[in-house]
């Protein structure tokens, strides 16, 4: 039960949604775009969010696309994590998104919602970061496409009222070899998901033309991809022990300590995982 009321709008076009947002904004409605709504509902129940208006984006056609268009996979922001898994057009994304929350909730959580989540984990982002994906954003009067990495720094940086419409991925990147892990306080999570919980460490590794891409969640208070770290991991000459020691020094923030694990334990898990990733991706090629 949400102890306050809000207005609910479900626009039919992206342009309307953005216009509506700005109108509501000027009326002090503190509007929020609403995808699956799981976070808005559960946070509002505890007064951790207080929107006076929500704009449901599930009626916007662009947000409901899930298909290859020419050489890119286009994923609408309103597609649920389950739909990504069931279609399995981008296996690494299935893995990363498919270990978020639990299966039933993933029938409701949308890709856009996971990317823009207020929780520090946002594991679907890991696959998108390592695959060099692009995002399509609706602004007042224009639609823009940008590389995700250029506007994702700890979180997705959008101007007020900007709406994430779609994510697109180079088709050839959807079938690159990958390695992905998730560890919770209670142990590993395999795929299909066999354990539920926030990550002590969640990872996505992808190998593109001999270079390892790597993104992490649970390690710092935000998901990130580190090019310096990738440099080290991809170095054919360097001994694994040295790689691990160096890699750990390239983290963008101190390692997290919380109820799921201490920083020391997370580092231990990270080292083990990096070692496994390097071993797994040794000499593997495209999975298409």
């Amino acid at each position: 039960m949400i102890p306050f009321n809000f207005e609910y709008y479900k626009p039919a076009t992206a342009r309307e949604a953005v216009d509506l947002f700005h109108t509501l904004q000027t009326r002090d409605k503190n509007p929020m775009y609403y995808g699956g709504g799981t976070e808005i509902i559960s946070f509002s129940r505890l007064y951790q969010l207080y929107p006076k208006a929500v704009i449901d984006i599930k009626g916007i056609p662009e947000c409901n696309v899930l298909e290859f268009q020419n050489d890119r996979l286009v994923i609408g922001a309103a597609k649920t994590l389950t739909q990504l898994q069931e279609s399995n057009l981008f296996p690494l994304l299935s893995w990363c998104a498919g270990r978020v929350a639990d299966h039933t909730i993933r029938n409701k959580i949308t890709l856009g919602g996971n990317i823009c989540s207020r929780l520090p984990y946002r594991e679907a982002v890991l696959a998108l970061l390592v695959a060099d994906c692009e995002v399509v954003i609706q602004r007042k009067g224009e639609t823009r496409t940008e590389p995700l990495e250029s506007i994702f720094n700890q979180s997705l940086h959008l101007d007020t009222g900007d709406l994430l419409l779609q994510v697109t991925v180079n088709k050839s990147h959807t079938c690159l070899p990958f390695f992905s892990t998730k560890r919770t306080a209670n142990g590993d999570v395999n795929y299909p998901q066999d354990r539920i919980g926030y990550p002590v460490l969640s990872t996505a590794f992808m190998k593109n033309s001999g270079r390892i891409h790597a993104a992490f969640s649970g390690l710092c208070p935000f998901p990130f991809r580190s090019h310096e770290l990738e440099e080290v991991l991809s170095d054919q000459e360097m001994a694994t022990e040295l790689k691990l020691a160096k890699a750990v020094s390239y983290l963008p923030a101190p390692i997290l300590t919380d109820i799921d694990g201490t920083a020391a334990y997370r580092e231990f898990v990270l080292r083990n995982t990096l070692a496994r990733a390097v071993e797994q991706l040794e000499g593997v090629n495209c999975i298409c």
């Binding site: 709504g37 039933t104 029938n107």
Partner: peptide
């Protein structure tokens, strides 16, 4: 036909 947790869904949805 898909399972949904009804505590995380608005009636208007």
């Amino acid at each position: 036909g898909w399972p949904i947790k009804s505590c995380l869904m608005l009636a208007v949805e």
